[in-house]
Every structure is written in C-alpha cells, then in structure tokens.
C-alpha cells in the first residue's frame, strides 16, 4: 500500500481544508503549490471567508502588502477605479458563486451612498444561508438587513458596521431578530480608532 500524497488528496478533503483559508492564501499561495491544489481552489466551496478589507480598490502611489502581492502575482499593472455598478455585479457574482460563504468583509473604500452596493447587500442574504459574520462600512436599512439575516442565515453570529446609526428602531430590531446573537459591533460616530461600541457588545 503506497502512502497517500497531499497532491492526490481527495477533493472533498482539500475543499474542507481550503475553505478555512482566506483570500490571501487562496489567491497567492495555494494555486502555485501544484495542479490539483490549483483545481481545488476553483471550487466555490473553497471560498468561505471573504475578507476584502485589506484589498485596495483604487490606484495609489502606495499599496499595502496584500494588494501589491496580488498585483505582482497576477501581473496587474494598475488597479482600475471601480464604479458602483461594478461592485454590485461583484456582489451578485459572489452571491451566486459562493453558496458556502461564512465570512464576508466588504472593502472599506467601496462607494457607499444610499443606493450603493452596501445598501443592496440585504437582497443577497437568501443565497448565503451559512453566513456567520458580516462586516459593512455603512448600513442604511438595518431593520430590513436584520430581517433578512433572521430569515435566511440560521448560524449567524456577528454583525459589524463601521458607521451605523443605531436608533430605537434599529436597537429593537437587533433584539427581535437576532436573539441568539454573539455580538454586534459598531462605531456609531467617527472615532480615531476602530473599536466596537461597548453598548452593543455582547448583546
């Protein structure tokens, strides 16, 4: 009996392992290990934790680590400024392609007006039934978002919103729709440091 090899590992096992990695490993390292690992990174179930917070989406004289490695690896010379519409399509794409999604963190510099993509995110909750953690910059219709999460995401654990207006309506929606909830974090106003508002932690 020959020893099992990592490159011949069963596809289900590879996906179970890769689903625990994030964007950075899945894009920059794993595909280059060997062909079978590359193929497993193309399976939607490998993409369960999408944290775009480190990704810069605009041209700049300075790119942080992840963005510059991404550009190097894939020979991207300049990042195009993405219009709102494009992000909407990206979200739609993620909604369709990543049914196993558990974590979603949207990039901080996505355009985010009342009609922006972050506003539309509530429309995708029905596709992400495994979602556990969501982080947004802004949220204009928290009540509706919470309603959708309550209906579709049974394992949901935590919601973070960078700048949220939490009034009486929103607070009661949190209590009503997310009773099993491990946490809500938000900095309500503009703070220097990113820190969760104590009032809502541990709800």
């Amino acid at each position: 009996m020959s020893e099992p090899k990592w490159e011949d590992l069963d596809r289900d096992c590879l996906v179970s392992i890769f689903g625990r990695l994030g964007l950075e490993s899945l894009l920059l390292d794993v595909p280059f290990v060997c062909k079978s690992w590359y193929k497993a990174t193309r399976i939607p179930q490998s993409w369960r934790h999408l944290d775009f917070s480190k990704l810069q989406l605009h041209d700049s004289w300075y790119y942080d680590d992840f963005t510059s490695r991404l550009m190097d690896t894939y020979g991207i010379e300049a990042l195009p400024e993405l219009p709102n519409r494009c992000m909407e399509e990206a979200l739609l794409y993620v909604a369709d392609e990543c049914p196993a999604l558990r974590t979603l963190v949207l990039p901080s510099n996505v355009l985010q007006g009342p009609q922006g993509p972050q506003f539309k995110i509530k429309n995708h909750m029905s596709k992400w039934t495994n979602l556990q953690f969501l982080k947004l910059q802004r949220c204009f219709d928290m009540k509706e978002l919470l309603t959708q999460i309550n209906i579709h995401c049974k394992n949901f654990e935590a919601l973070a919103i960078e700048r949220a207006n939490i009034g009486r309506d929103e607070a009661s929606a949190i209590v009503k729709f997310l009773p099993k909830y491990k946490g809500v974090a938000s900095k309500v106003c503009f703070h220097e440091k990113e820190e969760p508002n104590d009032d809502f932690e541990g709800l």
Partner: peptide, 13 residues
C-alpha cells in the same frame, strides 16, 4: 482540516 489549514496559512507556496 483546521489544523492543516493553520499550517498552510500565510506561507509562500
């Protein structure tokens, strides 16, 4: 899987 993922994470290929 988590244990294995932890030894892959953040390492160059």
């Amino acid at each position: 899987s988590q244990k294995i993922a932890d030894s892959i994470k953040d390492l160059p290929h």
